[in-house]
Design a protein around this nucleic acid. Structure first.
Length: 551
RNA sequence: GCUCCGGUAGUAUAGUCCGGUCAAGUAUACUGGCCUUUCGAGUCGGCGACCCGGGUCCGAAUCCCGGCCGGAGCACCA
């Protein structure tokens, strides 16, 4: 309380002792009143304080030093060695979103400079482009690093010529021993001319894999051994490991820090948004920037994003597919964008979630619930409703007094979306009608219990035997059962069913019957099977195949 | 081991730079009412957090020190 008063009236600061005495008296007085009395006083004297809170959409915090640049430039730079997944969502969406927020430029740069260990594959260049498009991230410029080797060579020539980089012939273990001891390796202090010669020898095939590596000089005393004289280019036997795009054209390939470091400046990057695993790479690259007289862009390093239950590691995804554990890159158990898309997750939901998470550098473990709730809000507003009866069992209703005409809206709040209609005609002498209902509902049925077939009529259960339940028509009006809160269940007239399979998030399949109207649906349609969940239609043929999104 | 980050309700985030209007905001989850011919959506309410210990100060989520816990990097990968 003292703080509050001082915050408003700073001039009282010198009279704190006096002030706190007064405040104590007032507080005691207020506390002696009941809550209702306190409220009444506030309302009569200061009605304007009773303002309503409104929730505004969460926005991204401003980019550091944004005003220093005339045009903000960001990039997303994947290695095309796998499909994209939720783990990349932060880099993609934040980079793109910031570019748009500042009316800047968003660049896609393929970092495919490792033909051997993290080998790119042609198909992924395109799948990445498609994923970005799906996410709503439009690319202003695209670069592929494997097209840019001459540029990297040019700058390497300069760095080596200036004595800021050197060609090291030491075996890596030898080199490591030296750096840990903060000592120069035998190559480091050789004259620049000698290194230029070695560099040319590298380019012309004078070294085989592992025999030589270009290193950028840093401070051997740098407290972090990982920073000391980092490797910049190495020799790859591209006869043995041809690059998928440029084959065996080059044998000297840049490493991450050289290629990305040069490109970030050359492409005019103002802000780099990437995972915190790259933090030391910034430290390393700054040495090179100093040699070249460049200033390093603003860098934001966010933490890893995990989602409970899903594996977001590229290697595990690839291994799982190879082993047949997963059906493919779009297996519903995976956190790939392909899988999310197949399940009917809207890109807008992912975007909201990522913006909500922001750019903090600690790791986050998201739960699917969060994503689903965003997605549900989008889907709920638009999706058509249908009945789906999972694991169908027969319900025979006797003594149906007349022909019923059921008209079911496709969307409860939007009648303009249309209806589906059923004409229910009692058959034979017992005036019976047979329906399909789901096993789950049948399990709760017992004699005498009343259920309502949604939008149709109420029935009283008579008998339950094996796979047949018999019931008796009870009444028609909903009002009759509304107050006693009977369970509304979904139903399908026997004979109208359309076989359906729903692939669940665990990849298991739920079999059942959908409404015949579902035959008209097109792949990609997202519908709600009432009381079952939202699903995305994958194919419509002899039967309906859909993927389960969420409740 | 060495070098960096970071720790706010179950989860995630705002606030931390620049101490006071923070008895800590928001979303989601959970929960109660209302509404609703879906166990969905909507709506109104509720529950629930500043890692720990010291210090500075009239006043600390915020500043300082120590501890604990979590994460990242330490490749001729990106």
């Amino acid at each position: 309380m003292v703080g509050k008063v001082l915050g408003e009236k700073a001039e009282l600061r010198s009279r704190i002792k006096e002030l706190s005495g007064v405040i104590n008296v007032v507080v005691a007085e207020v506390n002696s009143l009941s809550l209702a009395e306190q409220k009444a006083i506030v309302e009569t004297n200061w009605p304007e304080t009773q303002k309503k809170h409104e929730t505004e959409e969460k926005k991204l915090s401003p980019l550091p030093n944004a005003d220093k640049y005339t045009k903000i430039v960001t990039r997303f730079s994947p290695n095309p060695d796998c499909v994209l997944h939720l783990g990349s969502a932060r880099a993609i969406l934040l980079s793109h979103e910031y570019a748009r927020m500042y009316n800047g430029k968003f660049i896609l740069r393929f970092e495919d400079t490792d033909p051997k260990i993290k080998r790119p594959a042609l198909k992924f260049y395109d799948s990445i482009r498609q994923d970005l498009k799906w996410l709503g991230c439009t690319v202003d410029e695209e670069y592929i690093q494997s097209d840019r080797l001459p540029i990297y060579y040019e700058y390497t020539e300069k760095l080596v010529g200036d004595g800021n980089a050197y060609v090291c012939e030491c075996p890596s273990e030898e080199f490591r021993k030296k750096t840990i001891a903060m000592q120069a390796c035998p190559c480091r202090d050789l004259p620049a001319g000698e290194h230029l010669e070695r560099w040319h020898r590298m380019l012309t095939g004078g070294y085989t894999e592992g025999q030589a590596v270009v290193r950028v000089k840093t401070d051997l005393q740098n407290p972090n051994p990982a920073v000391r004289d980092w490797p910049a280019l190495r020799v790859i036997d591209t006869q043995k490991y041809p690059h998928p795009r440029v084959g065996s054209k080059y044998i000297v390939w840049p490493l991450y820090n050289l290629a990305a470091g040069l490109d970030d400046h050359l492409m005019g990057m103002t802000h780099i948004i990437r995972g915190k695993e790259h933090y030391t790479n910034m430290v390393r690259q700054k040495y090179m920037y100093d040699y070249l007289g460049w200033t390093y862009p603003e860098a934001i390093h966010y933490g890893r994003l995990k989602i409970t239950g899903a594996d977001l590691s590229k290697s595990k995804i690839v291994a799982g597919i190879k082993a047949g554990t997963y059906a493919g890159f779009d297996d519903p158990r995976l956190g790939t964008f392909a899988a999310l898309r197949k399940r009917g997750i809207q890109p807008e939901s992912i975007k909201k979630m990522i913006i909500d998470v922001g750019t903090k550098s600690n790791d986050v473990t998201l739960s699917w619930e969060n994503l689903f709730s965003y997605n549900r809000k989008i889907l709920d507003a638009a999706s058509a409703r249908y009945f789906f009866v999972s694991q169908p069992l027969e319900l025979k209703v006797l003594m149906v007094p007349k022909v019923f005409n059921a008209k079911l809206p496709l969307h409860p709040e939007k009648p303009e979306q249309g209806f589906r209609e059923y004409i229910i005609t009692p058959e034979s002498e017992d005036k019976s009608v047979s329906f399909w209902v789901s096993k789950k509902d049948v399990e709760t049925m017992e004699p005498e219990k009343i259920f309502r077939l949604m939008e149709l009529f109420n029935v009283k259960i008579e008998n339950k035997t094996g796979c047949l339940v018999t019931a008796k028509f009870a009444s028609e009006s909903y009002e009759d059962v509304r107050k006693i809160k009977v369970q509304l269940i979904q139903w399908l007239p026997k004979g109208t069913e359309f076989p359906a399979q729903v692939v669940m998030p665990d990849a298991l399949v739920t079999e059942g019957f959908a409404e015949a109207d579902c035959k008209k649906l097109k792949p990609d349609a997202i519908i709600q099977f009432e009381r079952f969940g939202f699903v995305r239609v994958n194919e419509v043929g002899e039967k309906l195949v859909a993927y389960y999104a969420h409740k």
